[in-house]
Amino acid sequence: MIFVTVGTHEQPFDRLVAEVDRLVEHKVINEKVVIQRGYSKYQPQFCQFADMMDVADMDRFMSEARLIICHGGPATFMRALSMGKRTIVVPRQQKYNEHINDHQLIFSRQVRDAGYQIEIVDEISKLKDVIAETSNLKDFEYKSHNSSFISKLERAVDSL
C-alpha cells in the first residue's frame, strides 16, 4: 500500500493528488493507494481518500504503507523515516500556488544532503520514475542521526 499525505496547509496541493490518481488510473501504480488530500480541490477517482485524518489514522496508514509520498513538511517526512518507511517528498512550491514560498523545497534538499534517506520530486513528471526506482530497492533501514546531533550539541555546550 502507498500512503500519500499533503498535510493541513490551506492551499490546495492538486498537483500531487491528481498525479497519483492518474498513475493509478494508468496502472503505473498497481497497489492500493490512500490519500490524505487536505484542502486540495481535485477529488481522486482511483484512490481511497480523506480530506483530513486524526493522528491515529495517520499513524495507522503510515505503519501499513510500503511507501509514503508526502509534502515537504519536516514533521511528516521525518515521522515516515522514523517508522522505517521509504519516503518520497514532493515539496509544495510557490510557483504552483501551493505555498507562500519555497521553504519545503529548500529544507527537504538540505535534509537529503545531510544524509537522510528521502527521495525528492521537484517536478511532478518525475514521480513515476522515482516510484519505480524506489520499488526496485530491496532493503531499507532508517539511519538515525541522533548520535551525530548529540555530539555536535555537546561540543556547542562545552564551548560556551
Rank of each mutant, 00 (worst) to 15 (best):
residue 101 N to D: 13
residue 131 I to D: 09
residue 18 A to R: 12
residue 92 R to T: 09
residue 41 K to Q: 14
residue 82 S to T: 10
residue 31 E to Q: 12
residue 70 C to E: 12
residue 7 G to N: 03
residue 78 M to R: 07
residue 130 V to A: 04
residue 96 Y to R: 10
residue 137 L to D: 08
residue 20 V to E: 05
residue 148 S to E: 13
residue 55 V to L: 12
residue 66 R to I: 04
residue 30 N to P: 03
residue 103 H to N: 05
residue 85 K to A: 09
residue 26 H to S: 14
residue 158 D to T: 07
residue 130 V to S: 07
residue 39 Y to E: 00
residue 95 K to V: 09
residue 158 D to C: 08
residue 56 A to R: 06
residue 86 R to F: 11
residue 106 I to E: 08
residue 97 N to R: 14
residue 150 I to K: 12
residue 6 V to S: 10
residue 61 F to R: 11
residue 38 G to T: 04
residue 44 P to R: 04
residue 29 I to C: 02
residue 91 P to Y: 01
residue 119 E to V: 00
residue 73 G to D: 11
residue 130 V to P: 05
residue 60 R to D: 14
residue 108 S to A: 14
residue 91 P to S: 07
residue 10 E to I: 06
residue 138 K to I: 11
residue 68 I to S: 00
residue 133 E to S: 12
residue 148 S to L: 09
residue 99 H to K: 01
residue 32 K to Q: 11
residue 5 T to R: 04
residue 90 V to G: 06
residue 157 V to S: 00
residue 60 R to H: 12
residue 124 I to Y: 04
residue 32 K to N: 14
residue 150 I to R: 10
residue 71 H to C: 06
residue 37 R to S: 15
residue 29 I to A: 02
residue 16 L to C: 10
residue 52 M to V: 07
residue 6 V to P: 13
residue 1 M to T: 13
residue 47 C to Y: 14
residue 95 K to C: 07
residue 48 Q to G: 01
residue 9 H to K: 02
residue 55 V to T: 11
residue 141 E to Q: 15
residue 37 R to Q: 06
residue 63 S to G: 08
residue 28 V to S: 11
residue 101 N to P: 02
residue 65 A to Q: 01
residue 47 C to D: 13
residue 113 D to A: 13
residue 153 L to K: 08
residue 60 R to S: 12
residue 42 Y to C: 02
